[in-house]
């Protein structure tokens, strides 16, 4: 049984596209990254999985249960961290944590105490006095304190400082080792690269690639931008080549020596070699060839 399984999942907001025929599979125990630019449909997908919105078409199953009809059963096993965190006015952090546990009919004080300590969260503060990052921590504790089997985290690290991000991913790794499935959305490549074992890329509401992170990102692909005149078109490993009389720009996955030799033959004024963004990798090296 898969942790998440969607078939043809489609949601339009009126005429505006949310997601379009999403087939997504997340196996139990995966540490899954869901990557895409803003507005690509990441949140729509997650919110459909949680039963907050109903799909127009297709189905979503979590642990084999239907996201529309068996919502409550699913939610008992899921911890969700929304992208934008909002709490009820006037409540103290500890009351929010207690309310969340109460809504689950559970006593989570032990786990929540440990989490608050690790995330350095002061539970006596009122939620509205907290900074964005600290409010996020409250939501993280809410999502983790009942030891869920599946963590659905929507852009979890925005607002967290680097130390907290480190601690946060440490907690996620522990949970993952203990058997929990982790599904997090992000538009930050390095985050997915460092922490996830599998990933899917969504763009304009459609999945454009899916697979293991090692497989997807294990190349030495670089984006090379050159100002000057040099002919790189015959070099093996060049993709997505754009040329103007004064510049050349391409994705390169071939031998570095060959590249340097070619460059020496031309007239180069300036050169930048950067890691391509994830979208480019997916678009040019996986979707068109392997997938």
């Amino acid at each position: 049984m898969n942790a998440i399984q969607t078939e043809d999942l489609t949601k339009y907001y009126g005429k505006t596209r949310g997601i379009d025929h999403i087939h997504l599979t997340v196996r139990q125990g995966d540490f899954f990254g869901f990557i895409g630019p803003n507005g690509a449909g990441k949140s729509t997908t997650i919110r459909t999985l949680l039963g907050l919105i109903r799909p127009d078409h297709g189905t979503a199953q979590i642990f084999g249960r239907d996201a529309v009809r068996q919502r409550a059963e699913i939610l008992a096993r899921v911890g969700y961290l929304p992208a934008e965190v909002s709490f009820y006015p006037g409540m103290r952090v500890r009351d929010i944590l207690k309310l969340s546990a109460g809504l689950r009919g559970r006593d989570c004080r032990k786990t929540s105490g440990r989490l608050c300590e690790r995330l350095q969260l002061d539970t006596s503060r009122r939620a509205e006095e907290l900074s964005f990052g600290n409010r996020k921590k409250v939501a993280i504790v809410c999502a983790l304190q009942h030891d869920p089997d599946l963590l659905l985290f929507d852009e979890p690290t925005s607002g967290l400082d680097p130390l907290m991000q480190k601690e946060f991913f440490e907690i996620l790794r522990e949970r993952n080792k203990a058997g929990a499935t982790i599904f997090l959305s992000s538009h930050i490549l390095s985050e997915i690269q460092h922490h996830c074992t599998c990933a899917a890329m969504i763009k304009n509401g459609t999945l454009i690639a899916e697979g293991s992170v090692a497989g997807l990102l294990g190349t030495k692909t670089r984006r090379v931008s050159i100002r000057g005149t040099v002919d790189c078109s015959s070099l093996p490993g060049v993709k997505d080549l754009h040329r103007t009389p004064e510049s050349t720009d391409f994705l390169y996955s071939g031998s570095q020596k060959d590249l340097l030799r070619t460059l020496l033959r031309g007239d180069v004024w300036d050169i930048t070699i950067t890691e391509p963004d994830l979208e480019e990798v997916f678009l040019h090296y996986y979707e068109r060839e392997d997938l």
Binding site: L50, G51, L52, R71, A72, E73, I74, L75, A76, V78, Y80, P82, E84, S86, F87, Y88, P89, S100, L103, R104, A139, C142
Partner: peptide
């Protein structure tokens, strides 16, 4: 309106 629905309705409580 206050965006707390996401909090409340992602707990295992039927609508």
């Amino acid at each position: 309106k206050e965006k707390t629905a996401e909090f409340l309705l992602t707990h295992p409580v039927s609508r």
